[in-house]
């Protein structure tokens, strides 16, 4: 019973954090800040939802498989974010501060 309540709390807060990240995708001003919003859903929402599901198992092989999914997602999603940011930077995308700098140089 306690486990069920705990899992409910974890699942609901996980859903809340994923929605937060999705809204951040629309609200944040430029590409690099949007990556931060996406990484919220990637890290904390994954941890919360998977651990919420683990509490609903009988702690057998199913729980271990969920743990594997968690480890895979936590290993791969920062790597994907980093690869994305790196290729955006090498492709010549500027951050907000750099755009402001070039505009100031043009004006003055």
């Amino acid at each position: 019973m306690i486990l069920e309540t705990l899992s409910t709390i974890l699942l609901i807060s996980g859903a809340f954090f994923s929605l937060t990240g999705a809204i951040g995708l629309f609200k944040f001003p430029d590409f690099f800040t949007r990556v931060h919003a996406a990484s919220v859903t990637d890290s904390i929402a994954t941890i919360l939802i998977i651990s919420g599901l683990i509490l609903r198992t009988d702690f057998d092989l199913v729980a271990i498989k969920l743990l594997f999914i968690l480890v895979f997602l936590l290993l791969t999603s920062p790597t994907a974010s980093h690869a994305l940011a790196k290729s955006a930077r090498h492709g010549g995308l500027l951050t907000l501060a750099e755009i402001r700098d070039t505009q100031n140089k043009d004006n003055g």
């Binding site: 690099f32 990556v35 931060h36 990484s39 919220v40 890290s43 904390i44 936590l74 999603s77 920062p78 790597t79 974010s81 980093h82 940011a85 790196k86 930077r89």
Partner: peptide, 9 residues
Amino acid sequence: TMTPGTLSV
């Protein structure tokens, strides 16, 4: 990268 708010580029 994994901690939200910072990102290694």
